[in-house]
Design a binder for these strands. Structure first.
Ligand code: FES
Ligand code: FES
Lengths: 135, 135
DNA sequence: TTGATACTTGACAAAAATAGTCATATATAG
DNA sequence: CTATATATGACTATTTTTGTCAAGTATCAA
C-alpha cells in the first residue's frame, strides 16, 4: 500500500521539533515525546539513528538532549528518511543488482513505471528541506 | 522503505501479459506463471482480484483463461494497483479522516511532505496506462 | 558526593502485513 | 467422460514494523 511508516513520520516530527529550537538549548527526548505523543523508547531509538547518521548531536546528563548538527536549510528530508529507514528503494532491481526482481530485467516491461515512481519519490524527498516545513 | 510489493509487481506483470494478447485467445494462469515465474497459486489470487475489480474477464474450463475487459489504453496503472492492493494511501490523515495520524493534524508541520509524496505517486500511476508499457 | 536527569546499547517481543499454499468445488471443450 | 481451468475461503509461514526492557554511562546541580 506504500504507506509511510511511523518510523519516518516520527523521525521527521522529531526533527521538526529540533528545528524549531535550532540555536537554542538542547531538546530532550522527553519533551518531544510529550509534545508529539510518540512512544518514548521508540523515539529514543530513532534519535540514536539520527545521531549515528550525523544529523543530530546528543548531549548527555541533566539539561542534556538533542540538537541539530546543521542548519535546517541544509537538511534534506531524504537525509532524515535515509537515517531512520535506510535508502528509499521502491524496487530492488538497480543497475548494480540486475537479477533480484522479475525474471529478466532486460525484458521487464513493467519496470519503467516502478523506476519512474522511484525517481519521483526520491526527487521530492531530495528537494525539500527541513526548513521548508518550519513556520 | 516504501518498497513496491510483489502483489503489485506480479499483478502488473500479469496484466502486461494479458495486454500482449489482447484480442486473441484467453491466456491461462498457467502460461503467465511459466513465463514470469510467479508462484502459481498466488497469481491465481491476484487474477481473481483483478476480475472482481472488473479489469479482466475469466473463462473457465479447457481452453479457458483470462482476457482484458478493456483496451490497454483505457487501463490505468493505478486501477491495477488499486485492484490488487487497495487504494494507494501514503498517509492515513485525509480530509475525511482527520485524526488518525499525528496528534493534531491542523498543526502537523510534517504533513505537507507526505501529502506531496502521496499526490505525486498517485499522479504517476494515474497518468500511465497499460498501453504505455507494451512494446 | 550524591541524586536526579538524560542518553546508550543490544537484545527481546508483540503485532501486523506480506507472501504463499491447500483442499474442495465448479465449469467447459473436445 | 476426462483433462483443463478457474473459484473460494481458510490456512500457514515469513518478514517487517512497532514497540519494550534492562543495565549501563555521562553530566549537572545542590
Ligand atoms: S525487473 Fe525489477 S521490476 Fe521487473
Ligand atoms: S497528521 Fe498525518 S502526517 Fe501529521
Amino acid at each position: 500500500m506504500l504507506k509511510i511508516s511511523t518510523r519516518c513520520r516520527y523521525g521527521l516530527l522529531a526533527m521538526v521539533e529540533l528545528g524549531q529550537c535550532y540555536g537554542q538549548a538542547p531538546v530532550s527526548a522527553q519533551e518531544i515525546f510529550k509534545k508529539q505523543h510518540i512512544p518514548k523508547l521508540y523515539l529514543q531509538q530513532l534519535l540514536v539513528k539520527l545521531r549515528r547518521n550525523g544529523l543530530v548531536e546528543s548531549i548527555r546528563g541533566a539539561k542534556g538532549g538533542f540538537i541539530l548538527r546543521k542548519d535546517p536549510k541544509q537538511i534534506k528530508i531524504l537525509d532524515i528518511v535515509k537515517a531512520v529507514e535506510g535508502p528509499v528503494q521502491l524496487i530492488s532491481c538497480t543497475k548494480q543488482n540486475k537479477d533480484k526482481c522479475c525474471s529478466k530485467i532486460k525484458e521487464c516491461l513493467t519496470r519503467p513505471v516502478w523506476v519512474e515512481l522511484h525517481e519521483v519519490v526520491n526527487k521530492v524527498l531530495n528537494e525539500r528541506t527541513l526548513y521548508d516545513l518550519m513556520r
